[in-house]
Design a protein around this nucleic acid. Structure first.
Lengths: 345, 345
DNA sequence: ATGAAAGCGCTAACAA
DNA sequence: TTGTTAGCGCTTTCAT
């Protein structure tokens, strides 16, 4: 007696039940006015009754909008397989992803996750967007020479970067005032009476690392310390330990350290303590990022806060704006840092 | 002279350039044989020449396949806004996400990320799937009573869970042999000559936490220790510190600790050391998960390894299989744990 | 304010 | 082996 075919209901079905045309049902669903309120009610009932859900593919086909965006995590080349499984272990990517997801959900859109550390993977990202699978891309990369931004721009695809690209590309991005952040660290160490200060900087091909180093050096210079011993690390705990070991050997009387991220700062703390230095009594130490290691370390680290979640949300906001109205010129938004003071200084 | 309209090329365009029909081009693209190799060549050239990319929406509309899946991260209720921004800071979610992404990319598919900690968010997940936005769901939840699995099953949507649901639901899942893992920890502490052993367990409404506790107790019982002092924690470092403090107050002579995860284990180490106990000389300690804190802690933690990435990949594999051939009965795959021995024991 | 009808770009019978 | 054709479910002019 009942229909044996359990097809999922379509607009047509709703229209038939409501006794109106497909067009009218479509109007009601898409919230277009000029629909008699009585009919609106009837249509809504019919939607309920049929259990109708719009088919996104059909809608996308005509609107030419996927209603989705891609979140691309790009790493340095040569990390290979490792990258995929480790990227999310990095709280940096994690917080950015969280910020993006949390912002987008309020707009009813959910990001597709892609990795792009190889050339093949980058091509897939471009392809994915060209197929219309997504309307734009959010690109978070630690790799300063990443060729992906250029490709996206060339393909005319809406995209927003996290962090300014190393080479100038006409593309929107959000970033933090890294120099100002490092200056906060310098001012704070000086205010704690430190005079023999050193720094562990990040990889110098990363613009952010450069900016943190430059900002720190300039601020210290303003305080009368034109030369700051420096050791370069790779943003890992281990590299922080190695850098601290070198600095300690060359400057055994140091009394202050600024590390370009918390992971390296934590490594530095461990080396200092192993070498009989008390933190903060003998050596005061400031990190950067306010990431989990800053809290896990003992003493807990004074550190420069980067408002990652806000930055991520802003990045998404800009992307939606550009998708909505294309053809605008690129825009950048720079966020201010802050200092969180804990027991390491 | 040249076409002013910069429409993105369609099958029709390629067909015209190649001098064949749409159907033939479609066959070439989808790798269907029965196409003359000479024509294949011509078509490929035409594709190159036109810069053609298939339109996924059009394809999905007829195949009734999105070619995508959802990765859902579900947290305990009441975490609210916090959840979104913190979920990815948790290395557990991060490693699972990494494993999933890494497996799926080899199949040319990229997951959509969704959060589902509120009822509204759960409804969105079901809706997203019903709209045909994705073909199935991978659900990673720490919330044992999560109603989402049930809803997915009821809606007839393909889904695979990480971890066995608290209430029986006819759904596929992957899990680890938690009891066996905890038994490894017990055996190891005994082999280190520890006799006054305590444990910090996880929240007892979480099946995995229950299993770890039960497994540990049973293994210790087999070694002649029928009673094991226990303190319940919440899987956080802070709760680990609190639990260790309580245990130390009641059993100042304890010489071995098993914590149900590394975060709590790390908290325990800090409390032990603050109370003048050396690790591992005075107290040996075993954690669970082999997560970053296990390496960041000093001494580094002996811990039970859960092969999260492999489990994640298997979860994705099962889902693809079910999408490919629906109507199979649920399946579960249980993974074996291993022990990583470091300096804490 | 509502309906009729024309596609969006693709795949899959079915013919040839 | 190749082409013809009929939709997939929806939005959107254009009439009315």
């Amino acid at each position: 007696m009942s229909k044996p075919a359990a097809r999922t209901p379509t607009l047509e079905d709703v229209a038939r039940v409501a006794g109106v045309s497909r067009a009218t049902v479509s109007r009601v669903i898409n919230g277009i006015r000029n629909v008699d309120s009585g009919i609106q009610e009837t249509v809504r009932k019919a939607i309920q009754a049929t259990g109708y859900t719009p088919n996104q593919a059909a809608r996308s086909l005509v609107t030419r909008r996927a209603g989705t965006i891609v979140l691309v995590m790009a790493g340095a080349p040569g990390q290979g397989e490792e990258f995929a499984t480790q990227v999310f272990a990095d709280p940096f990517f994690g917080r950015v992803a969280g910020g993006v997801v949390n912002f987008l959900r309020n707009h009813g859109i959910h990001p597709v996750l892609m990795l792009a550390e190889t050339d093949k993977a980058r091509a897939e990202v471009v392809d994915f967007l060209r197929r219309g699978n997504a309307d734009g891309a959010l690109l978070v990369s630690t790799h300063p020479e990443d060729p992906l931004p250029r490709r996206l721009v060339d393909a005319g695809l809406p995209a927003v970067l996290f962090a300014r690209p190393a080479r100038p590309v006409p593309i929107s991005y959000v970033d933090m005032a890294h120099q100002a952040g490092a200056a906060l660290a310098a001012d704070h160490l000086i205010s704690r009476g430190r005079t023999r200060v050193v720094t562990i900087c990040g990889p110098l091909d990363v613009p952010a690392a450069q900016a943190r180093l430059a900002g720190f050096q300039q601020a210290m210079a303003r305080h009368g310390h034109p030369y700051i011993p420096t050791a370069e690390g790779g943003f890992t705990q281990q590299s922080g330990e190695a850098a601290m070991t070198r600095l300690l050997a060359e400057h055994p009387d140091l009394d202050g350290v600024f590390a370009a991220n918390d992971l390296m700062a934590h490594g530095a703390v461990l080396v200092l303590q192993k070498n009989g230095r008390r933190v903060p009594e003998d050596v005061a130490l400031v990190g950067f990022d306010n990431s989990p290691p800053a809290l896990a370390s003992r003493p807990r680290l004074t550190t420069v806060v980067q408002p990652l979640e806000e930055m991520a949300a802003e990045m998404a906001r800009i992307l939606l704006e550009r998708i909505e109205s294309p053809g605008q010129s690129p825009r950048s938004v720079i966020f201010d840092p802050a200092l969180v003071i804990r027991e390491s200084t």
